[in-house]
Amino acid sequence: MFEIARSELIQIFRNRLVLVTGLIIPVAVSGFFVYQHEIFSDLGSLGYVAAIVLFSVTAFGLYTTAVTTLAARRQDLFLKRLRSTAASDPSILTGLVLPVTVIALIQVVAILIVLGVVSTSPAEIPLLVVAILATMAMMVALALATAGLTNSPEHAQVTTLPVSLAVIAVASWVGISGTENLAYVKRLLPGGAATELVMNAWDGGVSLADSLPLLIPTVAWVVLAVALAGRLFRWELRR
């Protein structure tokens, strides 16, 4: 697994397109939100700014890059090559998405530290950590499922749009309008409960007992996406 992850890391840094679209653009977008945090926190709260940063990086960085990577490796028959070795399927997939996941995690942590420095620190850091990890797990699982519907890296530009735009839209909807109305709908949508959890962790004022159940919809999305990936994911191009 770590050999595959190492080779993926090498490839990420050698491929300028992936480097720019997957790593630099999400950071630039997030940097804009941090720079304009006073304006965006007026719309919702600082927790909303943190959530939108989290989803900008995980949607446009982690999720999109993971789908593109898996489609490219399938198209190059590299997945088939890896399956010609003694490596198991889970270790191959983990190795392929691990570098981009770690990079996204570092990006999120770094940007949120900057946000905390230029504004106020999060109220519940452990809860924020849990929310970040759950969100990343959801986006990786959604990437595996989406990769099953994606024939090529070029096709990934289309297939990743619905989920990417949906999670950003849901995060903004929940962040700006709150969950007083349509709470169940907002929490069941992908990223809705995770946004609320991030806001609770950053802004404070909500008990842990009220916040922790918000993990359930996110975990449910992970389970659903993994089940979908199990049915949809293909190791080779269709004949």
């Binding site: 028959l77 590299f78 010609s84």
Partner: peptide, 29 residues
């Protein structure tokens, strides 16, 4: 697999890796 080497009909290597890296990776796995 540890007892079996496979030369596929189509290559299946990552274009951004070098020859040494490719052999090292697949060999290690």
């Amino acid at each position: 697999r540890p007892r079996m080497g496979i030369m596929l009909q189509e290559s299946g290597f990552s274009p951004d890796l070098t020859v040494r890296e490719s052999v090292g990776l697949i060999g290690a796995l």
